[in-house]
C-alpha cells in the first residue's frame, strides 16, 4: 500500500526538514509554495504606520510518496525537524495513493518508488541500509 504525505511547513524550516528526511533515506520529494492560514488566522506586519494584518501567509508544502510501513517514521522525522512549538508550525495530511508510474521506465506501483538507497528499498522490518554520513 502506497501513501502520500503532504506536510505544510514553515518556509524557514525547509532545509532542516530536507536534511532530516535525507538522513532517514528519503530520496524523492517535491515542494510547492502555498499560502494560507490555520487557527492563528494570520500575523501582523509593520506597515507605513504601525501594524497591519496579513491573513494569507507563505508556507511550503512538502510532498512525499512512500510505502505504508515507512509513514510513521517519516511523519515523526518531519515533526521533529519542523516543530518550533509556536502557532503556524503547520500541518500534515496523509492520503492513500492509487498507483505510481515512473515516466522514464513505465514501472508501476512499489517498483516505481524504488531507488537505490531509498527508504522504500528497505524491506518491511528490515534494517536500514542507508550509509550514515
Amino acid at each position: 500500500m502506497t501513501k502520500k504525505i503532504e506536510a505544510i511547513i514553515r518556509e524557514e524550516k525547509l532545509n532542516d526538514v530536507k536534511e532530516a528526511l535525507r538522513n532517514i533515506g528519503i530520496v524523492g520529494m517535491n515542494v510547492i509554495e502555498v499560502k494560507g492560514h490555520g487557527r492563528q488566522g494570520g500575523i501582523s506586519l509593520a506597515g507605513r504606520t504601525g501594524t497591519y494584518m496579513v491573513d494569507m501567509l507563505p508556507k511550503l508544502q512538502v510532498n512525499i510518496v512512500l510505502s505504508d510501513h515507512n509513514v510513521e517514521r517519516t511523519v515523526k522525522t518531519i515533526i521533529e525537524a519542523a516543530k518550533t512549538g509556536g502557532t503556524g508550525d503547520g500541518i500534515i495530511f496523509i492520503y492513500p495513493v492509487e498507483d505510481v508510474i515512473r515516466i522514464s521506465s513505465g514501472e508501476r506501483g512499489h517498483d516505481a518508488l524504488m531507488y537505490p538507497g531509498d527508504i522504500d528499498s528497505v524491506p518491511r522490518n528490515g534494517k536500514n541500509t542507508v550509509p550514515a554520513k
Binding site: 501582523s44 509593520a46 506597515g47 507605513r48 504606520t49 504601525g50 501594524t51
Partner: peptide, 16 residues
C-alpha cells in the same frame, strides 16, 4: 521612530 514605537521600524514607513 514613530513606526518603531508602534511596531518595528518599517522600511515602507521610513521612505514614506
Amino acid at each position: 521612530f514613530l513606526s518603531w514605537r508602534d511596531n518595528k521600524p518599517s522600511v515602507l514607513g521610513i521612505v514614506t
